[in-house]
Design a protein around this nucleic acid. Structure first.
Lengths: 208, 208
DNA sequence: TATAAATTACGTATTTGTACGTATTTTAAA
DNA sequence: TTTAAAATACGTACAAATACGTAATTTATA
């Protein structure tokens, strides 16, 4: 018998999942939660073996949630249900020690398999998600560098519509420096122009 | 007995919905489809009374789908399940004669109610979705003008990273004209700069 | 057809972005 | 502490964007 909890903000989806998983012989549902806070409170009393966690909702509070899970007495296995996740999310996810990632376009039977697999001690990473992640590692065999904190800060503000001068004022530095950071970020991301940079910033989850 | 079909690309969600709705005494499921094409082919033979349609997936083929539905012998009631929908989608939706819109964060019981309501001849518009839509009507009590087709075309290309010159080449017109369209669009949308324009274009669903 | 809306085009002046470069100081890691 | 990475700053030349303006032509539509 596998004890499972679901954390998913889309009520319709969550309740439908509950309805389905509740009918499985080897699964015992131990709660479903629409937000991380109420889930964590419940888990402090009783930790389920497997947590099905939707990380597609905004605010990336889900990552804080994963972090806090590591302080529980018992360590639950975590299966992340993702819609589309950005590079920023993925970087944090992969260092967070989760047991699986699944795309919502996967089959329901795959979800079941994944739950059983990770409960048995395995890992389950959906190829569509993991495959997409490879693009994050191929910014170029040449230029595959991660953005620095300052670069992220700068392009985040630029994507919000600020000019280089305004960003400089915001960060208390020179507009030439800002332009340099932006310049470097553009080369690392292999994009040109504010429009592409803006969409990239959104994609990377830098405007949350 | 209400005959219902589901069109939803997220397999896990769709199958979980099938599992749940299949257990309802007054609902008879007549098929579930992961894409509009296969759904339409099936509907040409037999039209369900109610179609639960997810419009949150890309390509906005869902709108073409709605349009084609109008050519069927019998007219099904349509309940749209939306994640977040942009202004462009909403404008087309509201002129498409659907019977209901529901947010995925609604409760499952609400979905049931909605299905029963529109089957009985009523309409069901979730306040969260409709409420959000009001923001689209308040681009300013002053400047609340709709974008023209050309303006949408121009800012869509600009948001994709093309310069005014490149857009001009693409559309076979002068770069001055392109700049003018962009200028006008910016005033209508009350934004400044490529970054803001790009995010607005994404928000409006112009980059699908 | 008459009228309004949309598309087209250009002028001009100023600001901002882009794409190279170099080089110093600060901060973090080995 | 030594070393590497990051952040800082500046030069220059050209391209592009921005913010005003006017106005002719085409296309819908009442």
């Amino acid at each position: 018998m596998i004890t499972v909890a679901i954390v998913e903000d889309q009520n319709i989806f969550r309740e439908a999942l509950v309805s389905y998983l509740g009918g499985q012989a080897d699964i015992s549902l131990r709660g479903d939660y629409a937000d991380c806070s109420s889930a964590f409170i419940a888990f402090q009393k009783k930790v389920p073996e497997v947590i099905v966690l939707d990380l597609s909702f905004p605010g990336m509070s889900g990552l804080d949630f994963l972090f806090r899970l590591r302080n529980l007495m018992e360590q639950p296995k975590v299966l992340v249900l993702s819609g589309t996740i950005g590079k920023a999310q993925w970087e944090e996810l992969s260092s967070m020690g989760i047991q699986g990632v699944l795309d919502k376009t996967s089959r329901l039977s795959i979800l079941l398999s994944a739950i059983r697999t990770i409960h048995a001690g395995g890992v389950f990473f959906d190829s569509r998600v993991v495959g997409d992640m490879s693009k994050f590692n191929s910014y170029g065999e040449n230029s595959g560098q991660a953005l620095t904190r300052r670069e992220k800060e700068v392009i985040s503000l630029i994507a919000r519509g600020l000019s280089a001068k305004e960003v400089a004022g915001e960060l208390g530095t020179s507009h030439r420096t800002v332009e340099k950071h932006k310049d470097n970020a553009c080369r690392k991301l292999d994009v040109k122009g504010v429009a592409n940079l803006t969409r990239k910033a959104v994609e990377l989850g830098l405007l949350t």
